[in-house]
């Protein structure tokens, strides 16, 4: 193939965009290797490189940084959340996409309506409900918050299942398969991309949320925290100067597993969607 001028231009433009998108990330990584503890405002790259932040973060926990236990807490919460959430999302998506029943439209409309309320509004009421159940300061409580309501996020999965050819299901019914069988043996295997998408996006929730987490885990015992609360706390105005670079190191450390997940998700998302349902 002949290389055209417009191709070079196109690639240059992409490279330019990628550069813009990556600058803050590069800064994050670079700063995490800085020897200085506070925020460096004079140069982009640190003046002295060092691994000290990672060493402190992982092996020298103090009351401010309990990174290993935060990571463990968040990981456990995230695993539980993603199992429950994925199950819920698929269940709701199948019921609304593939089954016809009386309340279907009504329930979907209620779902849409509920999404219109801001979540911060009912935060305090959720807190008192969990307190009545003795689930505040408890990771189970957080898992409940993150996963119990996940059924509302079914729309994308439903949209995907809508594209699963009806003829496939019809054929199964004719063979005498039950609705549950169709769900497990036909629709689920065909929904791989959307399952991976759901798993990963629900896995990410506990890593990202700090508003609910700070409200729920309010005992002040920092080893109970999630990564989000802990890292956010490091940027407290009193601590910023001592912990900014450790904050960056923490950000890098949690980004690594998440990046890997994202790369997997991307593969499934793109390949799965093209090679999967519609053409099958």
């Amino acid at each position: 193939m002949k290389i055209k001028f417009s191709d070079i231009l196109r690639h240059l433009f992409l490279a330019f965009l990628a550069l813009i998108w990556l600058i803050p990330i590069v800064w994050l990584v670079a700063t995490s290797f800085s020897k200085y503890t506070g925020m460096n405002t004079s140069t982009f790259f640190p003046e002295e490189w060092s691994l000290i932040n990672y060493k402190n973060l992982l092996f020298a926990s103090d009351s401010v940084t309990q990174f290993p236990s935060w990571f463990k807490n968040t990981f456990v919460i995230a695993c539980a959340t993603c199992v429950v959430s994925t199950a819920f999302v698929l269940m709701v998506a199948y019921a609304t996409s593939c089954m016809k029943f009386k309340m279907r439209k009504t329930l979907m409309n209620i779902g849409i309506t509920l999404n219109l309320f801001p979540a911060v509004l009912s935060m305090i009421a959720v807190y008192f409900i969990l307190k009545a159940l003795d689930l505040t300061n408890n990771h189970l409580g957080l898992i409940l918050i993150y996963s119990a309501t996940s059924g509302l996020g079914y729309l994308i999965a439903k949209g995907f299942m809508d594209t699963v050819p009806e003829s496939l299901r019809e054929a199964a019914y004719l063979d005498g398969a039950s609705e549950a069988r169709v769900f497990f043996t036909i629709v689920i295997p065909m929904s791989k991309p959307i399952i991976v998408y759901t798993i990963i996006s629900s896995f990410l929730v506990p890593w990202m949320d700090f508003v609910f987490a700070t409200l729920m885990l309010n005992s002040g015992i920092s080893s109970n925290w999630t990564v989000a609360i802990g890292l956010n706390n490091m940027l407290d105005r009193m601590l910023l100067n001592q912990y900014f670079t450790q904050f960056c190191a923490g950000g890098v450390l949690i980004s690594i597993p998440i990046s890997i997940l994202f790369l997997i998700m991307q593969k499934f998302y793109v390949e799965g969607i093209t090679g999967g349902a519609v053409k099958g």
Binding site: L17, A18, W21, L22, P24, I25, W27, L28, L204, W207, M208, F210, A228, L231, N232, L235, F247, C248, G250, G251, I254, S255, I258, S259, L261, F262, L263, Q266
Partner: peptide
């Protein structure tokens, strides 16, 4: 390259 930016949790990238 673009996806990496969203792999960093929002509160980290935004605070940064």
């Amino acid at each position: 390259l673009f996806v990496i930016t969203i792999a960093v949790p929002q509160f980290v990238s935004l605070l940064l």
